[in-house]
């Protein structure tokens, strides 16, 4: 049996991917650092990591939906809706403790996610269509709940600002939250039955039926989690940028998808890891930050985002084709004996 050599080869490839991301990170850092030395300052890194932290855990939620073979396009709108709702509640009740606001935002997100999950799981509507529709609906609701009055800097209470600014054990709250969510998600996805069922379902939906995996429940679960993380992210977002507007986190779904794809999550489902997504987010965060530092205008930023997604997908296609070819060549079809 050659399975050991398959394994070592596979491991090698996986390693190469993470190594690849690492190399790209270094190259980008050097280039940008040469152009603009501000890049290497602690303040810039803190800024960037704070941005990447929110992106990281929302991308982890996104990853779960992509692993099932679906997608959640509504995350950006959920961030905005949760952020706006919480912002307004805070403006009207400045005495409310921030913890309550965080909980409220998370519950709003969870609600949005459950609606997505019910439509996809029970209603059997395609995830792309479902979340494309709810993306617009939730975005529309942002304007409705705000009655076109944005939450502005003056509305933000001191305690609320502290959510993003504060530290736990010397680590910034946002990074701490991302870290905890990453660890819990890793544990959930790799060490519980439900977590493994998510991978199995995304790998082969028909076979999942054969082992009694309930597709409705899996779908509701992943979209609910994705929505919940986006809702939580919405609160942190407003605390970080000090405003909530109709266009908050507009196009954010693209960033989460990009982080996943860069991190090796297969758009065909069944493959993806928390660690990969963290690396993907880090690289993506650095690139976004660099574009700003180099002084590239916003619409170019979008193009660059799209370009990165494209490169990552092509890279994956080439890689998986090569793996399949290698396996074919090693396969024991012609038995010598």
């Amino acid at each position: 049996m050659n399975s050991r050599s398959y394994k070592s080869r596979l491991r090698e490839l996986v390693r190469r991917r993470e190594f690849g991301i690492f190399i790209i990170i270094v190259i980008v850092m050097v280039l940008v650092g040469l152009r603009n030395p501000i890049f290497f300052t602690g303040d810039n890194w803190k800024d960037m990591l704070m941005y990447a932290s929110i992106l990281a855990f929302i991308s982890i939620g996104q990853m779960m939906t992509i692993v099932t073979g679906g997608i959640d396009l509504s995350v950006g709108s959920v961030v905005a809706l949760s952020g706006m709702s919480v912002g307004i509640i805070m403006r009207d009740n400045p005495a409310l403790p921030p913890v309550v606001l965080i909980l409220l935002g998370t519950v709003f997100g969870l609600g949005c996610g459950i609606i997505n999950g019910l439509l996809i799981g029970k209603g059997k509507v395609h995830p792309l269509i479902t979340t494309l529709a709810t993306m617009s609906i939730y975005r529309g609701l942002v304007v409705v709940v705000s009655r076109s009055r944005w939450v502005v800097y003056g509305d933000i209470t001191k305690g609320f600002k502290l959510i993003a600014r504060g530290n736990i054990l010397g680590i910034n709250n946002l990074m701490f939250a991302a870290l905890i969510i990453a660890v819990v998600s890793y544990y959930f996805l790799n060490h519980t039955r439900k977590g493994r069922e998510i991978y199995a379902y995304g790998d082969h939906q028909e076979a999942a039926k054969f082992v009694g995996i309930n597709s409705t429940r899996i779908n509701i679960l992943v979209y609910a989690l994705s929505g919940m993380l986006a809702g939580f992210g919405g609160v942190l977002w407003v605390s970080r940028v000090h405003t909530a507007q109709a266009n908050t986190a507009l196009g954010y779904e693209m960033q989460t998808i990009a982080s996943c794809v860069i991190g090796g999550v297969s758009i065909f489902g069944g493959v993806g890891s928390v660690f990969g997504v963290l690396l993907g987010t880090l690289l993506f965060g650095i690139i976004l930050n660099s574009l700003e530092l180099i002084g590239i205008v916003d619409f170019w930023k979008l193009s660059v985002q799209g370009f990165i997604i494209l490169v990552a997908v092509i890279f994956d296609a080439v890689l998986s084709h090569r793996v399949a070819e290698q396996m074919r060549k090693q396969r024991r079809v012609f038995d010598a004996e």
Binding site: R196, Y199, D203, H204, E206, A207, V211, G212, G270
Partner: peptide, 15 residues
């Protein structure tokens, strides 16, 4: 009816 990206052991005991 197997999960291609999972190990043999996981396939045997899934669920």
């Amino acid at each position: 009816s197997l999960f291609e990206d999972l190990s043999i052991a996981e396939n045997i005991y899934m669920g």
